[in-house]
Amino acid sequence: MAEEIKAGCARPTGGPVGEKPAAKKGTTEEPVIKEVKSMVTVGKKAPDFTAPAYQKGKFINVKLSDYLGKWVVLCFYPGDFTFV
C-alpha cells in the first residue's frame, strides 16, 4: 500500500478522497486569490493528502485515499518530545 520513499513534504492533493483534484487552468490566466477555507465537515469526504511518515524502521509515503475501504483514525498533535 505505502511505498518506501526518500523523505519529502506533506501536501494536500486539493480534493476529497477518492476524487480527482480539480483540473488546473491554463498558466496564462491570472492566479485567483481565494480565501483558504477548511474543507472539513462531518458527513462529507475528508480532504485527501500525501505525507511522509516513519513506520517500523522505514520512511514511507502515506496517501489517505489508499486507505479507502478501511476505517481510519487520523490524529494530529502539537509535537514530538512534548508531554501530554
Partner: peptide, 28 residues
Amino acid sequence: VGDVFGVYLQDAGVEARGRFIIDPDGII
C-alpha cells in the same frame, strides 16, 4: 495538511489535538 483539516495553529506553528474518524468511503 493540518490547515485544510482546520487544526493548524498558525501563531504557535503547531497542530492542535485533532482526531478524525474516517469511514471506509472516506467520509468524516
